[in-house]
């Protein structure tokens, strides 16, 4: 989602950063972008050169006293390097490991200096807001979640791809009007937002407005705008296991709860989805999820249990059915695969 902005309209981000630099008194900006986005890097480089040539970046911008330089820093693609303190360390050339906050970057950030750190979408919004006024921006979306949001629509849905919608749009509109609904013969089951840090919105909440506050009420987040649709063929324990597998791989290993806890949570999910879980395992799973959420150092570990907690909240029966799995029991969502494989 952010990549599409960097590739499609890099000048918007540069302009937003320069304005932010002017407002906060910074003279140096960095764009941290992962190496896996070569087109974004190429276009950003070109855009920075163009902006420097016409005096929109560099020294004495518009003949003023204001100087602002933007450099690109390329990351190796570790998820944890999106966490702000890890990102700062990575720009400094160190290992991308988070550190406890406070001090927040605004107090002590890059090389110990006060640092403003924002997302691509945030910077991309700045210039249009200044040009058209805050009233224009606030008129889009809801009072508390103003503006639009870009989602990457994926999963069991007919039309996948990037969409930009006003905040507060009902989920139903995204799934059915834009996405065209789930594939033939299946029904909508849930939508996962916020990726491995988020949670799911169950089928009976189709009229939920998609904004920050409403997503929080169902225990999910907006995040970077991933929106994965699950239909009646999806197994929610497998969904949770998939995201936990990701977090096991991406944990930086600094703090004990996330480094070891994610491995044990994944092991328990594996055991339960394999039909070998007991009620004690389910209780332990819930306890470990709560513990990892409350004790981890950074946002990665703190949010890693969310997909499990969320699927437990709305689809608990899919877990409990597996616990007492009798002989020949077919887990939820596997019915179709079973019938085709005989």
């Amino acid at each position: 989602m952010d990549r599409s902005v960097l590739e499609g309209d890099p000048h918007r981000v540069l302009e937003g950063m320069a304005i932010a630099g002017y407002a906060s008194g910074a003279s140096q900006g960095f764009i941290y972008v992962r190496a896996e986005y070569p087109l974004a890097i190429e276009r950003l480089r070109l855009a920075i050169k163009q902006a420097e040539r016409v005096g929109l970046l560099g020294n004495r911008i518009f003949d003023s006293q204001f100087n602002f330089r933007i450099d690109i820093r390329i990351g190796a693609g570790a998820f944890v390097c999106g966490e702000e303190t890890a990102l700062i360390r990575s720009i400094e050339g160190k290992r991308g490991r988070p550190r406890p906050r406070p001090p927040y970057p605004s107090e002590k950030g890059l090389w110990g200096a006060p640092t403003l750190i924002n997302n691509v979408e945030t910077f991309a919004n700045i210039a249009p807001i200044i040009r058209k006024g805050s009233a224009w921006f606030a008129a889009i979306g809801t009072p508390k979640s103003a503006g639009t949001k870009v989602f990457a629509l994926a999963g069991k849905i007919r039309n996948t791809g990037l969409i930009e919608v006003p905040m507060g749009i009902p989920l139903r509109k995204i799934i059915f009007d834009i996405g065209g609904g789930t594939p033939e013969g299946t029904t909508f089951k849930a939508a996962q937002t916020g990726g491995p840090s988020g949670g799911c919105i169950p089928g009976d909440s189709l009229d939920l407005p998609v904004d920050y506050e409403s997503l929080a009420t169902v225990g999910s987040i907006m995040g970077s705008g991933g929106l994965i649709v699950m239909d009646s063929t999806s197994n929610m324990v497998d969904v949770a296991k998939y995201f936990m597998d990701f977090c096991v791989d991406e944990s930086c290993g600094k703090c004990v709860p996330c480094r070891v806890g994610t491995v044990h949570i994944h092991g328990l999910l594996e055991k339960i989805s394999g039909g070998r879980g007991t009620t004690d395992d389910l209780a332990l799973l819930e306890e470990l999820c709560q513990m990892v959420k409350e004790t981890s150092l950074c946002g990665l570990g703190q949010s890693a249990p969310n997909p499990v907690l969320s699927t437990l909240r709305f689809f608990r029966h899919e877990y409990t059915e597996l616990l007492s799995a009798p002989e020949g029991f077919v887990p939820a969502g596997a019915a179709n695969e079973k019938s085709t494989t005989g």
């Binding site: 550190r99 406890p100 703090c255 004990v256 709860p257 409350e294 004790t295």
Partner: peptide, 20 residues
């Protein structure tokens, strides 16, 4: 200090979060 083991976490009134 690195705040890594998380054994020293304490509760602070007014916040649901735990602090090293």
């Amino acid at each position: 200090d690195v705040g890594a083991c998380r054994l020293c976490l304490v509760e602070i009134e007014g916040s649901p979060k735990l602090f090293p």
